[in-house]
């Protein structure tokens, strides 16, 4: 366990293997390379993403599907894959940074964060094309993965031997 100072939540004790590492930081925050998720029930569906190095810096992040039902085509370049040390069979998570202006929530679909869940290496991408803006307003609904949609509806059975 290590202790992290935060302005918002005081001292947090976190396991070292929950720290997310950016090789190049975030744009505008290049000197900050280590972050942790702070998941507080009252803020869901948003999650805080808090800097380990600077107690003042934290972002609200969310699933991109709260902002767009379009297929979110985030293609990783060979350099991105190398930065994430992506290997066969790794899982990646994609989330977006949220901002609020006058009660309007927007997600930055142009610069999503991609995370290799195995080694917790992350990178802020710059998505090509004009389909995904920096400030995409939040939708009232989102697309969820099929297994989360059927979680309560599916018949549970054990596989035949």
């Amino acid at each position: 366990m290590i202790e992290i100072e935060t302005h918002e939540w005081g001292t947090l004790k976190v396991k070292e293997d929950t720290i997310i590492h950016f090789q190049d930081g975030l744009l505008g925050f290049e000197e900050l390379c280590d972050f942790v998720f702070v998941d507080v029930a009252e803020f869901r569906p948003f999650v805080w993403f808090s800097s380990v190095e600077d107690p003042q810096v934290r972002f609200a992040v969310a699933d991109p599907f709260y902002f767009s039902t379009k297929a979110y085509d985030v293609s990783l370049s060979a350099a991105d894959e190398a930065g994430l040390e992506l290997e066969e069979g790794d899982s990646i998570a994609i989330f977006v940074i949220v901002s609020i202006d006058n009660g309007q929530v927007t997600g930055n679909l142009k610069g999503p964060i991609v995370l290799n869940t195995r080694n917790r290496r992350a990178k802020q991408l710059v998505v090509y094309g004009t389909s995904f803006p920096v400030r995409q307003p939040m939708l009232n609904r989102r697309v969820v993965p099929l297994h989360s949609a059927v979680a309560n509806a599916a018949v549970k059975t054990t596989p035949a031997a």
């Binding site: 505008g28 803020f43 810096v57 972002f59 949220v98 901002s99 930055n108 142009k110 802020q124």
Partner: peptide, 20 residues
């Protein structure tokens, strides 16, 4: 993206709690 990151770092817990 840099400007948006900067702006997003100013989201307050109070504001986020409201929209959540």
């Amino acid at each position: 993206i840099r400007d948006e990151n900067q702006r997003a770092s100013g989201v307050s817990p109070r504001g986020l709690r409201e929209v959540a």
